[in-house]
């Protein structure tokens, strides 16, 4: 599954039969998208404005005072106020929440990727009787959202395992619920590695385990990164499970944002500053990983 970044135009707007059949298969660049051009850019501009508007408004709102926001809700910062951001960074529990978010997401990601790769390997490349039924267990798992099991999960983690208010208490269930998707994406990935490679490795005296370590793992790195990013995003954005399990200093950023917003709901500027700071690192990371995320979702879609 490859997604190239360069888009291949399927058709050119307004390119009627004459334009397209201009004899030679003209290089794509030259033959034009003619009349539709302006309209397309206008629509694109509108889409951008609607998409980014609320986000930019929050970012800029953080640079305004509440008085400014009240007197001219649609205005720009005038003058620019840095106090909201300063307050959030120095006086709130922002950093505590951020550390928790990173820790929970990191544990979730590592557990998901390690367990997922290990399980996907025999499911992809060993021949055994229970292979397909075993795989089906995980496929069916795709249908179980954490929401369905949330109450028993809460009781299991807090009472039976006693890890209620801890990083692991959130990360382990999150990893468990991320596993089906991970295995469904990774298995075809591992299957696609040519058999000849395996034969060559075995002819060279490698055992299956050595083949797994030396050949398969390095080759499956792109797939592992994709499922890792998906697991990280899922954990970073998670709300329901942390909401039930984490309290006080153990809270993650989404909980912190929601708390801050309900505690200081009249301090709109402060809420915008907190929200902006909470989204910026994630936004940079996730947008950098955009292709991986789309690849992963597509993989799940086409699996």
């Amino acid at each position: 599954m490859t997604t190239t970044t360069t888009p291949t135009p399927v058709s050119r707007d307004g390119a009627g039969p004459t334009a397209a059949s201009g004899g030679t298969r003209a290089p794509r660049q030259g033959s034009g998208r003619s009349e539709g051009g302006v309209l397309v850019y206008l629509v694109a501009l509108l889409v951008v404005a609607l998409t980014l508007g609320p986000v930019l408004y929050a970012v800029l709102g953080g640079f305004r005072s509440n008085a400014q926001l009240a007197s001219a809700p649609a205005g720009l910062p005038d003058p620019w106020v840095f106090d909201n951001y300063r307050r959030v960074l120095t006086e709130s529990a922002f950093w505590t929440y951020a550390v928790n978010s990173v820790a929970v997401a990191a544990i979730t990601t590592v557990v998901t990727v390690v367990c997922g790769l290990m399980a996907a390997y025999p499911l992809a490349r060993y021949q055994f009787r229970w292979r397909e039924p075993l795989f089906m267990v995980f496929v069916v798992g795709l249908l179980f959202p954490a929401t369905v099991a949330i109450i028993p999960l809460f009781i299991l983690v807090t009472r039976d395992l006693g890890i209620g208010n801890t990083w692991w208490g959130v990360a382990l269930p999150q990893a468990a619920f991320a596993l089906p998707m991970t295995i469904v994406i990774l298995r075809p990935f591992l299957m696609a590695i040519p058999r000849e490679m395996e034969e060559a490795a075995i002819v060279d005296g490698a055992s299956r385990l050595q083949f797994f370590w030396r050949v398969l793992l390095p080759l499956s790195a792109p797939g592992a990164v994709t499922v890792g990013v998906l697991a990280f995003v899922g954990s970073w954005n998670a709300y329901l499970l942390p909401l039930l399990l984490l309290r006080g200093d153990m809270k993650t950023l989404p909980l912190g944002v929601a708390d801050f917003s309900s505690q200081y709901s009249s301090d709109t500027a402060g809420v915008f500053a907190f929200t902006t700071l909470a989204m910026i690192p994630a936004l940079i990371f996730f947008l950098a990983m955009q292709k991986r995320i789309v690849n992963g979702l597509q993989g799940a879609v086409k699996g």
């Binding site: 986000v55 989404p254 944002v257 929601a258 917003s261 909470a278 989204m279 955009q290 995320i293």
Partner: peptide, 21 residues
């Protein structure tokens, strides 16, 4: 990339922003 921005935000963050708007 821009179109992807709302999707990668958590529902909580998007919700809090819209609540204020």
């Amino acid at each position: 990339t821009i179109i992807f921005v709302p999707y990668v935000l958590s529902e909580v963050i998007a919700g809090v922003v819209w609540f204020q708007l």
